[in-house]
Design a protein around this nucleic acid. Structure first.
Lengths: 337, 337
DNA sequence: CGGCGCACGTGAACCGGTAAACCCCAAGGA
DNA sequence: TCCTTGGGGTTTACCGGTTCACGTGCGCCG
């Protein structure tokens, strides 16, 4: 099959290329009669613009990029990315914009990808995920003037617009909830320390706990089940063992719960558990896990809208997402006395 | 920042555009001296080819496409896709080829995406996943002559090359293993019936069970935890209740195991459980799940290699992946007498 | 010594769009 | 009547590569 070009249409309509271009792009310069005729021919031939030619002309492809820098091992289980991508996708495909995906396991490699994408005119802009407290990507993207939206923040994003969720507030709500149930020693198994939102949550944890006069402790893990298990067992072996643990992702929460029960500690009797990000995983565990629930697809969709605006040269402000909700299930209860 | 073009290099080197192109693409027509000089300037300027211009010329972008047609809800939990993508990616990025990702929840929409991608010159080829027994995509892709590799099969793929895993053989091995443990009533909670590999496994189940003289039954679910749970409870309520269940994915296996235990049926005492696709999820469950393990990243990598060959016009044969292994863990045991 | 072939390059066409410059003709105003 | 205006086009350049048809100059051979 041959793909029709704008020339084929021009020939069929007996007009010039330029006229066809005007007609199909809704710009003045052709009579409405001719315009209709051209459009009819275009739809009859099933014409679609050659995205390469168009992009070559204005130097900007209609493709946005996403680099995911996490080990495939931990990536797989977490619904977060798939949901985020599906939210991004929904917005992009409605705008006929493609999403270029690349995976890497290295911060430096990720930066190299941005440079390459930029140099090769592969993408018009990128989504930045997993913001770090010291994030080398920001400077590079600003230097390249590659449009970018940070999913996270909103601090330390330089001049890049951020789409963010109030992690600190959500964590505070969790601690208040647990304290309200009567817990006085609350622990948190956090994600990697270098991630920005990990730090935000840690600070919120410390401050809220202090405000309420409860003990708090944060230990760091890497989002994997094994690390969650290890961290949990470590916490439970402490003399002043916590009566509640908040996990930074669902995988660690499920693993931690299983480990605790195996160690003979009942949930929620002797230990309350809260997971972050409510996914089907929380319902696979027994008991079902109380979880912090966010609309991740909407998060992605908002980020996509911002980035679309940005590449079109519009001014884009930081966007704050709706606040997370705490979904209470069987894994939280007042502590045993 | 301005991206250097081939013209900038030509000017600096005092030669014509054409000479630069020859030099940088390693084709004859320039002296090795000039070639070296041109290459030096190119690297000094950090020149990278404009992928759009290049693709426009030869009508084929260096991007491959993947459409995922599954509800985001079930997608998220299954590590399968992320691992597959990460395998594909590893191969593609080594070849400097991009991966365009799109999600949809509708077979027809998926076909529309292929047509659009084709018409817009967006991708040079596509990966076809989740092959169905009646798959409308095959005909469309052949009609469009859009290079495509089917991940699955190898039957019913038309003239498209397949990269496949011996699902039937693996299922036979599972049934033999269970029968060897002494199980005489084996059930299977399968994925959607319309998927090709579901059918292959079902046939293998029936034949192997018949050959061994054991009872077998297959019920269909949709890969979600809830559906796995429901199917499990249904099976366990039957008068001739199975003593072993094989699940077509890990999510249903974990959910089914939890549901069975909640219903007072011990695993593996009264019920043995085998999951398909060994992921971290199998280690999150208690007991750890016996599982059929495949190297999914290698699967994706092979598919990527095949597709790369195909778009370059090389002849590509069906590729059979290494056989899955059965990883025995705590969820399988001889049946209680 | 003239012609041929080869190595090395140049110039222009082309891929499929977009956009700016220009052209022609009819209508309207001074 | 002349000039302007503007609607409706056409022509042409351009985006940044690739490739093909041609020079050119040199060495070699008959």
């Amino acid at each position: 099959m041959k793909r029709p070009t704008i020339d084929d249409i021009a020939r069929r309509a007996g007009v010039s290329k330029g006229a066809v271009s005007f007609a199909l792009n809704g710009r003045p310069g052709v009579s409405s009669e001719t315009r209709r005729r051209i459009q009819a021919i275009a739809t009859e031939l099933g014409w679609q613009p050659n995205s390469l030619a168009r992009a070559l002309f204005d130097g900007r492809p209609d493709v946005l990029g996403l680099v995911v820098d996490r080990p495939a091992r931990t990536l797989g289980l977490e619904p977060f990315f798939m949901q985020l991508i599906s939210g991004i996708e929904a917005t992009l495909s409605a705008a006929s914009v493609g999403l270029l995906l690349q995976m890497t396991e290295d911060h430096e490699a990720e930066i190299a990808i941005y440079r390459k994408w930029w140099a090769q005119h592969r993408v018009a802009g990128v989504f930045v995920v997993d913001l770090r407290t010291e994030d080398a990507r920001i400077d590079v993207l600003e230097e390249l003037r590659l449009p970018a939206v940070v999913i996270g923040g909103p601090e330390r994003t330089g001049r890049l617009p951020a789409v963010w969720i109030d992690d600190g507030g959500a964590l505070a709500a969790v601690v208040e909830h647990l304290a309200g149930l009567g817990h006085r020693r609350i622990a948190r198994v956090a994600g990697p320390e270098e991630l920005m939102h990990t730090g935000v949550r840690t600070a919120a944890m410390r401050e809220t706990a202090a405000g309420l006069g409860v003990q708090s402790v944060t230990v760091y893990a890497d989002y994997s089940g094994e690390s969650g298990e290890r961290a949990t067992l470590d916490l439970l072996r402490r003399p002043d063992r916590p009566t509640a643990i908040v996990y930074d992702n669902d995988v660690m929460a499920v693993a931690g719960t299983a480990a605790a029960r195996e160690a003979g500690i009942s949930v929620p009797g002797e230990l309350s558990v809260v997971a972050w990000d409510d996914s089907a995983l929380c319902l696979l565990a027994r008991p079902h896990l109380t979880a912090v629930s966010r609309d991740i697809a909407a998060y992605g969709a908002d980020a996509a809208r911002s980035l679309l605006d940005l590449v079109q040269g519009r001014e884009v402000a930081d966007t704050r997402q709706g606040d997370p909700r705490l979904v209470s299930r069987g894994s939280t209860a007042p502590p045993a006395v």
